[in-house]
Design a protein around this nucleic acid. Structure first.
Lengths: 341, 341
DNA sequence: CTGAAAGCGCTTACAG
DNA sequence: CTGAAAGCGCTTACAG
């Protein structure tokens, strides 16, 4: 492997100058820079990241933590984040919680973030007191996407979950539905996410605004997945006196609901209407009505906000402001007025 | 930040001993190890990865390259790989090609893999001559999932794509179909994947074995995505004299086909049968017949094979063997005999 | 604009 | 089983 000394020798300068020239620092004359670049090129030189990190204190890496990379929202966010990071020359260290509390602790509380990244991006990752303490102790810049958790000084990019749920529920109410069920996230979930709490609030507020008391019998909790939606809907139907509409807290749950309803011999939307939140890639295929949220846009924006202080002037004042992106009701074939009987 | 010297001082030993004790090397007495661990614990010490990498030459990191993390297969593989890697104490550096040739070159040909990882896992990543040269020059261990490309010395985990396509087509033939269309990957694709070539071969071989000449008019190329499947099917229908069955090269394309058929007023499976390959999470929801492939299993297996020589005895003989995992025909509601007319 | 030298924080032969 | 010392390959004040 060629080292910086080899380049310095060939270019006839010191290693300090090579280092400066290669990183594009302004304190190098044009002629010198040209010679250094040519030498580096000729020797096919590539800086040693470990050495550079140790000496410079920067890793050129951002750690990204997601609950489940296999879910539409997180995969879409990660793809957008990856694009922004790599365009800026940063590497992406991926941590997938996978629903395991043990993993969460490994990632957030141990030294797994320590000196491995210049910044941390938490996507919908719930934080407990001990996590917050550990994270704060790291003293890293960070950003958050779509989480109820707050880290002091970390900007947050998200949608208004209460409003999105409110819009979905209002759509059903507007069609004439009164018995509107809700299937949502599990409070027993090891990881204690908060998104589903906001969405339930929007659901309940919309009902109350229409003069309807939320019926606990129509509110079933399960996982934020296709299977979760399926199970929740099976349970809902088991309780008897089925609802005329189901508002699922995310499109994947809505898809599980579609399956459970079909298995029960109920037609959508003739017998039961279904709406979700997300606008998953497949929702259009299924004709699923939903409240669309901009997943890639949230990823891009958060990555840019995160990178800004890292790549810009060393110490810009951090703007730890939050950004709330708009959602949009998308009506397809899974919602219709209730049957007249 | 506490450093190794602090731990050494508190434990009353040299930094060399701290280093050995913390890494669990056998050449440390039990008593000393206990003292070192206690000191490290007390000081909340965590090794500096950069320093450790520079001195030791190992990064504790594996680079994973996928075409598109948003596609079901790749997200599922990455989740499984992440789990195995992190359980073994390895970090995962994610590279998403995103369909851009420029990105591919950045990842594979430049120094982006250089000294940043101890090993590379390529998932369905097509390799050109220049890529192979660059990869070989890195002199890293690696493994491949599901790619037609071969890197000398790198084991490969995959399914038999020809056989999977053969099985899907045979299923349609068995139902009585004769006009079976195929929608598949695009040869104009910047990244030149090969999976779709194998799947087309399986399709054609199955047809020929049934005495049917493959009809180029029934073979449409597009992207390996929902939209790609949609477009290909629209094109297929535009050509007139529609097929009685569509074999899509992956479930996502099949889903796009379902949508296009529905938009064209054709019923599945009464008017047209549809089958894919994958067993995507949503295929069950859509009632899509498919040939299931074990995505997570491929990821787990490849990660273990990759890690084996890294974590085991320093120089085990590399077994660069390939593993082919079985697929399985899953018949659901999207395939049926052709109409009798 | 450039260089000599110290230092980043570990690991690894080498010696005992 | 343990330690002193060199070295991993850069970057960064500091001086000029």
């Amino acid at each position: 492997m060629t080292k910086i000394d080899d380049v310095a020798r060939l270019a006839g300068v010191s290693t300090a100058t090579v280092s400066r020239a290669l990183r594009g620092l302004p304190t190098v004359s044009a002629a010198t820079r040209r010679r250094v670049l040519a030498a580096a090129e000729q020797l096919d030189y590539a800086v040693s990241p470990s050495a550079s990190r140790l000496a410079g204190g920067r890793t050129g890496t951002v750690a990204v933590v997601v609950p489940r990379i296999t879910r539409w929202f997180f995969a879409t966010v990660v793809e957008a984040v990856e694009e922004v990071l790599h365009s800026a020359g940063y590497d992406l260290l991926l941590h997938n919680l996978g629903g395991r509390e043990q993993t969460r602790q490994r990632v957030l509380r141990t030294a797994n973030l320590h000196k491995r990244a210049d910044a941390v991006l938490l996507v919908a990752t719930p934080l407990r007191a001990a996590d917050l303490t550990a994270l704060t102790a790291l003293d890293l810049p960070g950003a958050i996407i779509s989480s109820g958790s707050v880290v002091p000084g970390w900007p947050c990019v998200r949608i208004d979950d209460v409003a999105a749920a409110h819009a979905a529920t209002r759509h059903l109410l507007g069609l004439g539905h009164r018995r509107i069920a809700h299937i949502s996230g599990d409070p027993e979930d090891e990881l204690a996410f908060t998104t589903h709490l906001d969405r339930r609030r929007g659901y309940q507020e919309a009902l109350r605004a229409a003069g309807i008391m939320p019926d606990p019998g129509l509110d079933v909790e399960s996982q934020f997945t296709i299977d979760g939606g399926h199970q929740a809907t099976v349970e809902l139907l088991r309780r008897g006196d089925p609802p005329t509409a189901v508002f699922a807290a995310c499109d994947e749950m809505a898809m599980g609901a579609l399956r459970a309803l079909r298995e029960a011999g109920l037609r959508v939307p003739q017998d039961v209407s279904v709406i979700g939140i997300d606008d998953h890639d497949l929702s259009v295929v299924l004709g699923l009505s939903t409240v669309a949220q901009p997943a890639a846009e949230q990823g891009r924006l958060a990555a840019r906000i995160l990178l800004d202080p890292l790549v810009g002037s060393p110490r810009l004042p951090r703007s730890a402001s939050s950004v709330i992106l708009p959602t949009r009701l998308v009506v397809r074939d899974s919602t219709a007025p209730p049957r007249a009987d």
